[in-house]
């Protein structure tokens, strides 16, 4: 192999790495907590739990879901509404871009109407019932419970969904 063609090969290699890097998108969790699921369905078994601010690498996408890899190397699916895409700087700096809202979502994490504002509001309104709100937030439907409920009721993929 001549020197030139070896160099060409090297160039192609570098270009491939470059494209791969450009495609590998970092996604940041913007909801309090979400599951990484085995399949792109809400009733599919969780394989990992992620919290707000954690990042994952996107592998592929499919109708509202991202296949991702977590920092611990676990692969699975998360719903697109649970994440903000990682192109923060590029998107947020370009004011003409409408898509900057999700990037801001991450820049604004913990800001605005937050825990501190709520604490101040509570100190002004001591009779407001936040205790029941905390109890309400503890009500959960697990993916397995949901799967069984849909199946028994012949709903969604298990029956009459159109």
């Amino acid at each position: 192999m001549s020197k030139t063609s070896r160099f060409k090969l090297l160039l192609i290699g570098v270009a491939v790495v470059c494209v791969a890097l450009l495609l590998a998108e970092t996604l940041i969790i913007k909801v309090q907590t979400t599951y990484v699921r085995k399949e792109p369905k809400f009733y599919s078994s969780p394989v990992a739990t992620l919290n707000a601010g954690e990042s994952v690498t996107q592998i592929s996408s499919q109708a509202g879901w991202f296949k991702v890899r977590t920092s611990k190397g676990v692969e699975g699916w998360i719903h697109s509404q649970a994440v903000a895409t990682g192109k923060l700087k590029v998107a947020a700096m370009d004011k003409s871009l409408k898509t900057s809202a999700t990037a801001n979502e991450v820049a604004l994490a913990g800001k605005g109407f937050n825990r501190q504002v709520e604490a101040e509001y509570k100190s002004r309104n001591k009779d407001i019932n936040f205790g029941e709100v905390e109890r309400m937030l503890r009500i959960k439907v697990t993916p397995e419970e949901l799967r069984r409920f849909l199946m028994d009721g012949k709903l969604a993929e298990f029956g009459g969904a159109r």
Binding site: Q32, E105, L108, N114, E118
Partner: peptide
């Protein structure tokens, strides 16, 4: 309004 701010509004 971010999802997180919406949550604090919804809580109150």
């Amino acid at each position: 309004i971010t999802d997180e701010e919406e949550y604090y509004i919804g809580r109150a």
